[in-house]
Amino acid sequence: MAVDMDLEALLRAPAIEMAEYPPKMITLANGKKMIVRQADIKDVPVLLQAVRPTLEIPRDYYDIVGARLYAELLGWYRHRVRNEYCLVGQIEGYLVGIVNGRMVDKDIGMSYHTLAIDRGLRVGSHLFAAKMEYHIEILGQQEVWITAESPIGFRRWMIEYGLIKQEGVQHELGGASSYKLTRDLYFETKPRLVAGKRPVSKRFLDEAMDKIMVADEDAISEKICGVKGR
């Protein structure tokens, strides 16, 4: 698609430089190793391929989370969201989860979405924790604004972290209630909620970096709804 770069320059918001998220490896309950790493903007087309099947899955609000995540990733790819980032979880190269957010300014982070493809292993929880780690420890921010669109999200974020409700504060995702994680709260909850080891051995990192592999649509639906549909 031809792009008029003069006009495009006006449409693209200036970005703040963001430190890179250092990859880490998490051992899951089934013993498998999940690599959590930062996705590159060039990875977006393959990520969209993984998100697309969720648009048809109403279970646990995957459809709305998927639809919004799809738009956010596309917005990042087409340079219409400022300072967006995306972290991915991979097991043996396969994509098992995605989280994203953006840096509002040097002090405030905006958490967007968490989408777990492999379920029952706390993949979503581990990735959300990685997202908080990124904002607080790597980007050095003071607080992260968070909302939830599913009861599972509410249980995992608002309750497990004891997030602070922000009356009258508008989260970028719309009218849902807004909560925040402060630096103090993060470090208080870190020992029980943030997992992972660094550095990641070359073998595991090479496997993850080589290619983001995506299961086929049926397999993604099955993973989300359960092998036996439950």
Partner: peptide, 12 residues
């Protein structure tokens, strides 16, 4: 390993 031995089991 995943539920006891690995340090990540604290979260799992």
């Amino acid at each position: 390993e995943g539920i006891v031995d690995d340090p990540d089991s604290v979260v799992n």
